[in-house]
Deep mutational scan, measured.
Amino acid sequence: NITNLCPFDEVFNATRFASVYAWNRKRISNCVADYSVLYNLAPFFTFKCYGVSPTKLNDLCFTNVYADSFVIRGDEVRQIAPGQTGNIADYNYKLPDDFTGCVIAWNSNKLDSKVSGNYNYLYRLFRKSNLKPFERDISTEIYQAGNKPCNGVAGFNCYFPLRSYSFRPTYGVGHQPYRVVVLSFELLHAPATVCGPKKST
């Protein structure tokens, strides 16, 4: 009989979030998941669920729940959905087409922007091929755009693959930082360890 609440607040209220290319994953298990708490945590810009209804979450049980978190800019949030393409979905964080879970995003301009520009958040701009779903690539190998090998040196047709967002508070919403948490629900042929409040007794 599990009584402890799932530590969603640790994920959502973390002081620092990860850069999207090096997104963070927390496995959540053996706890009571009260998803209604999430609705009250922040004024969400996005709370979209796929393959599951957000209002039914509190009635369900899962084997595992994974919470992935990272920062992107406002106009990239739409890429965090099944079947999307674009720089983020292709080279940084890719959801599977049959994704079961929820994408939660909110504006973090007050936390993640600086007047002089916050350069701490990076994204991958160049990659030889698209990522597979939930693949994480943290390599910093020089990207070869031409025929000549780069031998690890940046220059003509040889690019450092990561680029930094420079978040400034005066930017338009599309270029402001957004914190994203992706909850993916895993149903294996194994005992369910993460249940809503109704199912945990």
Rank of each mutant, 00 (worst) to 15 (best):
T3E: 08
N4M: 09
N4Y: 08
L5Q: 11
C6G: 04
P7I: 07
P7W: 06
F8A: 03
E10F: 05
E10A: 10
V11T: 05
F12M: 06
A14Q: 14
T15A: 09
R16Y: 12
R16K: 14
R16T: 14
F17Y: 06
F17S: 04
A18H: 09
S19K: 02
S19L: 02
Y21I: 03
W23M: 04
N24K: 15
R25E: 02
R25S: 02
K26S: 08
I28Y: 15
I28F: 15
S29A: 10
S29M: 08
C31W: 04
C31H: 04
C31T: 04
C31Q: 06
V32E: 08
Y35Q: 06
L38G: 02
L41Y: 15
L41R: 12
A42K: 14
F44L: 12
T46L: 12
K48D: 08
C49F: 00
C49G: 00
Y50I: 02
G51N: 08
V52W: 04
S53R: 09
P54S: 11
T55P: 08
T55G: 14
K56W: 02
K56Q: 13
C61N: 13
F62S: 07
Y66C: 07
Y66W: 11
A67W: 07
S69M: 04
F70W: 01
V71G: 01
R73Q: 09
D75K: 08
R78N: 13
Q79W: 01
A81L: 02
A81P: 02
G83N: 13
G83K: 12
Q84N: 05
N87P: 15
A89R: 02
A89C: 04
A89V: 04
Y93E: 01
K94G: 01
K94L: 00
K94N: 05
P96L: 00
D98G: 07
F99C: 00
F99E: 00
C102W: 00
V103A: 00
I104Y: 11
W106A: 01
W106L: 04
N109S: 13
K110H: 14
D112C: 00
D112K: 01
S113M: 07
S113R: 05
S116Q: 14
G117D: 12
G117Y: 05
N118C: 06
N120W: 07
L122N: 13
L125S: 15
F126A: 13
R127I: 03
K128F: 07
K128P: 12
S129I: 09
L131V: 09
K132I: 07
P133H: 02
E135L: 03
E135K: 02
E135A: 07
S139G: 10
T140W: 06
I142F: 09
I142L: 13
I142K: 06
Y143I: 10
Q144I: 04
N147F: 09
N147P: 12
C150W: 02
C150P: 04
C150H: 03
N151L: 11
G152T: 08
A154T: 14
G155C: 07
G155D: 10
F156H: 14
F156V: 15
N157K: 12
N157Y: 07
N157Q: 13
C158D: 05
C158Y: 01
Y159I: 09
P161W: 01
P161R: 02
R163A: 12
S164Q: 13
S164F: 07
Y165K: 05
G172K: 15
G172D: 15
V173P: 14
G174P: 10
G174C: 08
H175A: 14
H175Y: 12
P177A: 08
P177F: 04
P177E: 04
Y178S: 06
Y178L: 06
Y178C: 10
V180A: 01
V182I: 06
L183Y: 00
L183D: 00
L183K: 00
F185K: 01
L188Q: 14
A190D: 13
A190W: 08
P191T: 12
T193R: 11
T193N: 13
C195H: 08
K198N: 15
K198I: 12
T201S: 14
